[in-house]
């Protein structure tokens, strides 16, 4: 069964096309990385998949359901961080995690140990009682990921999960993502860090100008080179298509 699915999704912001017939599936136990240049459509795809954006055309599903209206038992098995995490600057680290636990369906009693375990797991012990506004950007990112994954979800979406992290945090998130997938979760991450996605992803999807332009094998040392070659090829083909469809272009 596919846990995360975008089916022929198209989205436009006014005249600008952000996604063009994008189809993407992530199966349980699989880590899929979405890579692309700035403005390629990665975050738009993740927003559509997390229910935050109703696509112009096509369908998104989480564990077989409309992400904008998940039933309780399905939502309780889903976690996501896209753009802004579920972190409030006025609350402490522990309070943020307890709030996240309550909103993910945990009882008041169950939220306390869940928050405490997440603090330990994400290396935030020293800031347990610190207001989120006082945290460094990296620790805020750790907290956001902790709020979205403390409940070991079956379907996970993480947008640029290591963008602000130090090397220790990167390793921590890498182990978390791999651990979730090893437990059977379907994980979709977007990233600019090609070396990082090469380490954690089972599949790498290249998105360019809102379109899926191909897959890259995670292994090897020349991932960056293969990525740029794929992007260049997509641009070349798009330019050729535009030329042939322009009146008089064939001449």
């Amino acid at each position: 069964m596919t846990a995360l699915r975008l089916d022929n999704v198209t989205h436009t912001f006014g005249e600008r096309s952000a996604l063009d017939r994008l189809t993407l599936t992530v199966r349980p136990g699989q880590v899929t990385a979405l890579i692309g240049l700035n403005g390629a459509g990665k975050t738009t795809a993740l927003r559509a998949l997390s229910g935050r954006l109703h696509p112009t055309d096509g369908e998104a599903t989480i564990l077989g359901h409309d992400p904008a209206d998940l039933p309780f038992d399905v939502a309780a098995r889903f976690g996501h961080v896209v753009d802004t995490p579920l972190v409030y600057p006025d609350l402490t680290v522990t309070e943020n995690l307890r709030c996240a636990a309550r909103l993910h369906g945990r009882s008041r009693r169950a939220a306390i140990p869940a928050a405490s375990a997440a603090v330990d797991r994400m290396g935030l012990e020293a800031w347990r009682h610190a207001r989120a506004r006082t945290l460094s950007m990296g620790n805020r990112q750790r907290l956001g990921i902790a709020c979205a994954t403390f409940h070991r979800p079956s379907a996970v979406i993480l947008d640029e999960p290591t963008s602000a992290l130090d090397p220790q945090g990167v390793v921590l998130v890498r182990e978390l993502v791999r651990g979730l997938a090893d437990d059977g979760a379907a994980v979709l991450v977007s990233s600019h860090h090609l070396d990082e996605v090469a380490r954690i992803a089972d599949e790498i999807v290249v998105l360019h100008a809102g379109r899926d332009v191909g897959r890259l094998e995670p292994g090897g040392t020349d991932l960056e080179q293969r990525f740029f070659a794929m992007v260049l090829d997509a641009d070349t083909r798009a330019a050729a298509d535009a030329h042939t469809t322009t009146p008089g272009g064939r001449a």
Binding site: R47, S50, G51, A68, A75, A76, L86, L103, H104
Partner: peptide, 14 residues
């Protein structure tokens, strides 16, 4: 404004 509304999607509490 801050974007936390987006994080309130896909939660067990609607």
């Amino acid at each position: 404004e801050s974007g936390t509304a987006g994080a309130l999607f896909g939660l067990a509490v609607p």
